[in-house]
């Protein structure tokens, strides 16, 4: 005698539970469609515009962070190395290459909550285009590691957390360029990993 109500109850349970869970997962996993991807780096040049897709609009409404306008800059994020392994603080990474043309760029790391990953007082955890050591041809090499390195050392601290690298380009034509074949972002290569 409870067959029909039970059936309906199960259907509702699956529908509401599945919809809520999938919506939360989708909004956590990505900022939306329309990303430009260069290697492991991803940016959403249209996430702040009217033309953004519903996922991007829902995402920005949930996070409530002021986004960069088109003429202001473009924010690239990388959560993995070139081979697709997630970035971990216990591993060393070498970032090498150039950035797309920009007047000024900054590099920092964030943890899962979006907070700045700081290794400790006085340790270099952030860089920008004017305090970085470059090679003669304008390329640069940054080593992200918990241990001190020569050259540009990006200290990641010894907290065993996954992190993301954020490279923000200010005043860049990148956001407006339609074909991104020629754009180059630094490569991220994994070095040695320390256990324990």
């Amino acid at each position: 005698m409870f067959r029909v109500p039970l059936t309906i109850a199960f259907i509702f349970l699956i529908a509401f539970g599945g919809a809520t869970a999938s919506a939360i997962l989708a909004l956590r996993a990505t900022v939306g469609f329309g990303a430009i991807e260069i290697g492991p780096w991803t940016a959403w040049p249209e996430a702040q515009t009217e033309a953004a897709d519903p996922y991007a609009k829902a995402h920005r409404a949930r996070t409530g962070v002021l986004l960069l306008g088109g003429a202001e800059g473009l924010r690239f994020m990388a959560g993995s190395d070139d081979e697709g392994h997630a970035l971990e603080a216990r591993c060393d990474y070498t970032l090498s290459g150039v950035t797309p043309p920009a007047r000024f760029w900054t590099l920092h790391a964030i943890d899962e909550t979006g907070a700045l990953l700081l290794a400790g007082d006085g340790l270099p955890s952030t860089y920008h285009s004017q305090n970085i050591l470059k090679n003669e041809d304008g390329t640069f090499v940054i080593t992200a590691s918990e241990k001190p390195k020569t050259g540009n050392w990006l200290a990641t601290g010894n907290k065993a957390v996954p992190y993301q690298l954020v490279l923000t380009l200010f005043d860049t034509p990148t956001a407006g360029s339609s074909r991104l074949v020629d754009l180059q972002m630094p490569q991220i290569k994994r070095g040695t990993c320390h256990d324990g």
Binding site: I14, A15, F16, A19, Y55
Partner: peptide
């Protein structure tokens, strides 16, 4: 259930 979930997913987003 899955059909309803897909529909509601769109509504929620």
């Amino acid at each position: 259930g899955i059909f309803g979930a897909a529909l509601l997913h769109i509504v929620i987003v």
